[in-house]
Amino acid sequence: MAARTLNEDSHKASIAVSEQIKSPVRRRLLRQSIIAYAFLLPTFIFVGLFSYRPVVRALIGAFTAWNGLLPPTWVGLSNFIQLFHDPVFLESLVHIGWWSLIGIPLGMLAAFAAALMIYRLRSMRAQYWFRFLFVMTMAIPGIVGILIWVDFYNPGGAIDLLLNVVGLGRFGTAWLANPQTALWALILMGFPWVSAFALLIFYAGFQGIPTELVDAATVDGATSGQRVWRIEVPLLMPQIKLLIILSIVGISQNLLTPLLMTNGGPENASITPVLYMYQNAIDYDRFGYAMAIAFVIFLVSMTLAIVGMKYIRTGNEQEGNGV
């Protein structure tokens, strides 16, 4: 009995002691929390007002009808139902599909080829200078590049004149105002499509390839072409997948190019989903509908990115880290 009481007492005492120890720890954590919140406060004020709030409004707004003047009214899923019967929206999906299918391989191929050629140069100095110069081509702001291409595409512009020179002048047209060519003019803008970003990613990937592997292949008599297809392309798959995902995300979000070059015209021949969202909100005051479009693009591009990320990760595990 006595022993038990003693035991209980000491147990109680130890609880009391541990609480005594704990409470200063807790008090210290509380004090540090207050300091931390002070450090975080400006960030959260800004993102709260200008990031979270519009995100919430965007997600709710997709289920409302709203002209910007009267308060929005809840319409449930009807924006989405209307959207999938909207011929312009469906057309815009086809356009973005073509843009991805044609534009992404062209861009990847160009950057891969450029990175490969630079990597094959013996002189490190030459490698450095070519990389430097390709990155410098990116220094020109995107908007300036787009405006110059608008001039190239204008009737009588650089493209038409080039066609004249090679004797194909009869094919000259107002590339951006012709419904047959407007979308393709957007997709093919930026020839020769060497993105310095993709080039740097690929170049870093080449540098990550173990030299023993290449040496072994060379000893076995592999040709340069075999080296590319059997070693370099498979080992650069993580980079390729990464760039495909970033390109899909980039193309689906690209509002600037179609807005400035064609504004989706003529007669929606070059409309894209993001531009259609913009037009619905800014030109037609259909804010709820616009937010529904944004919602759909967001879901689709997120799904594609998540699916792609999964593949990237498995790729990286096989290979180590190329970048």
Partner: peptide, 17 residues
């Protein structure tokens, strides 16, 4: 999570705000 929020999603509500 904000890194996953694309600019076009908030463009319209931010404009109205």
């Amino acid at each position: 999570g904000l890194l996953l929020v694309p600019g076009f999603l908030t463009l319209i509500p931010l404009f109205l705000q």
